[in-house]
Structures are given as C-alpha cells and as structure tokens.
C-alpha cells in the first residue's frame, strides 16, 4: 500500500458549494483538516454541517468546488477505495433485522472482500481488534436489535474501525446518548485518534464537548465558514453571539485548560430595587 504524503492534509476543501435546486446549502466552503487531528464541525441547525459530511462520504456531489482526500480528488476515488479510507458513524441507526454484533462489525470488511470470498483469518483478527478497541467484544453474539443506544453507537464505531480507515466521519454521534455514554464515546474517540492514528471529523451539537475534545473547530453559519481554528479562537463571545444569538461567558476549565461555555439568560436580568 502506498502511504500518502505526510505533509498534505487529510481533507482539503476548495470553494465547495452545494445546492438543492435553487436552495443553496453550502457556499464556497474552504478549510483543511490536518492529519491525525480531531476536528469539530459546529454551527446552528441548518448551517450545512450534515450536508458537508454527506459531500465527504460521496452521498452528495458538490455543485461546485473540489474536495481533496489525502491529496487525491474525491471524484476520482471509487466507492470501495473510499470505504477503505473513510469510516462513517451516523447520528442514529435503526435496524429491524436481528444480525449479531459480530456480523455487523464484520460488514466493515466488505470493501476488502472480492465476491464470494470468505472472510480470512486476517479479516477476523481485524474485526476482533476493532471490537476490543471499542469494548464491544463482550456482546459479540448478541442481536444488534437488543443493544442500548450507547452500545449500538460503539458497535458502529467498531464497524467503521474494521474498515481500517485513516479518517473517521461522525455526524452528531452522541445526540441520542445520555451524558455518561456521551463522555464514554468521546473518550473512546480521543483514545482511538492516538492509538489508531485516526483523523477525526465530527459534527457536534454540544459546544462544550466540542471545546473539550477537538484540536480544531470549524464554525459554520448559513452555509459558510464563519470561523476556523483552535477552540479558544473560534469559541469567542462575539462569534457565539453572532452565529447562535446567545449570550455566553467563557471560563477556562481548570483541569484541561479548554474553554467552557456558560450560557446566560437572553436578556440582562432586571435588577430589583
């Protein structure tokens, strides 16, 4: 396997636009996602975060602009090759058919298998390692329909890891989880970023989570990049007020040094006299 050049970024978006007919969703988006970094995509509802992810996994094709993945034009990469480079973890996922957890994870090996080929010992070893890394091996035989939300998300991460990707895309992976499972999943991602040399691009709804786990944040507003950079730069009181229309106070968190956002009431409380 040819290792792509280390100096080129994992993802480079050049003036990417997308429109459904007349309605423009993304307009001239440009930013880069550095290799082995944890990048968060934030912005209000309808700012185009999910659409952008869909352009990256080739579910949608940009109407203008270019996307480079590890230096290669995304349009030139066929679906199977793409699936070996990029794993995607959706927001939520329902399946009505009672596959076992093991069967679900092994489907991540699909892009590596030729028709009729049985999974090799190596494929199974990769599947097992993916389950070990995500702490899902304990319920390998359980039907996936029986899992809790947190377990199911971890199984999806395991499936994505079985694809042996260099890039992991996540669309609000924690939006249906309680706080305990949310933190567990974020810690897991952070750990995998290091142990598997993964580049992570994740859409976050919760700004404090994004601030805590991401190395870089991209703030989208109305289909445009409003700000991009380190969390301390992007999450400024001015930016948050301009984009989300909320009043906030920022405090560095003592343990991590990352900014924490305290949301203030919409208007100044009236001082009672």
């Amino acid at each position: 396997m040819v290792k792509p050049e280390d100096d080129c970024p994992e993802i480079e978006l050049q003036e990417v636009s997308f429109a459904y007919g007349e309605e423009t969703i993304l307009s001239r988006i440009s930013f880069t996602v550095p290799k082995r970094g944890f990048t968060g995509l934030i912005g209000p509802n309808g700012s185009g975060k999910t659409t952008l992810l869909k352009c990256l996994d080739k579910t949608l094709t940009p109407t203008a602009g270019r996307i480079l993945l590890a230096g290669k034009d995304l349009m030139q990469i066929d679906l199977k090759t793409l699936a070996r480079m990029v794993g995607v973890v959706p927001q939520q996922w329902e399946v009505d058919f009672a596959f076992s957890v093991w069967e679900i994870v092994m489907m991540g090996r699909y892009p590596f298998l030729s028709p009729f080929a049985r999974e090799s010992r190596e494929d199974r070893a990769i599947g097992r390692a993916a389950m070990e890394a995500t702490n899902t091996l304990a319920f390998a035989d359980r039907p996936v329909t029986e899992l809790s939300g947190g377990e199911r998300q971890r199984v999806l991460v395991a499936q994505a890891l079985a694809q042996k990707p260099e890039l992991l895309l996540l669309d609000e992976p924690t939006s249906h989880l309680d706080i305990n499972h949310t933190l567990e999943l974020c810690e897991l991602l952070k750990k995998l970023q290091r142990s598997e040399n993964l580049t992570i691009l994740a859409v976050f709804h919760d700004l404090n989570l994004a601030a805590r786990y991401c190395d870089q944040l991209v703030l989208l507003n109305e289909g445009k990049v409003y700000a991009c950079g380190a969390p301390e730069q992007v999450l400024s009181t001015e930016n948050l007020e301009a984009v989300f229309g909320v009043r906030v106070r920022l405090r560095p968190e003592t343990e991590t040094g990352r900014p924490t956002i305290i949301f203030l009431p919409k208007t100044e409380p009236e001082v009672e006299s």
């Binding site: 996994d57 679906l79 990029v86 794993g87 959706p90 996922w93 009505d96 596959f99 699909y110 892009p111």
Partner: peptide, 23 residues
C-alpha cells in the same frame, strides 16, 4: 447468490451500505 453479502449490507439502510463501499 452473487449478491448475498450485498443484500446483508442493504438491510443496514442505503446510506450505511453506501458508506461501506456499495454502489
């Protein structure tokens, strides 16, 4: 029979199947 594995992927939903490299 050629498409048994692909049929499995399809049960995960079109989007997920696409993300796993299936046309």
């Amino acid at each position: 029979y050629r498409y048994v594995r692909e049929l499995n992927l399809l049960l995960l939903g079109e989007e997920k199947a696409h993300q796993l490299g299936l046309d």
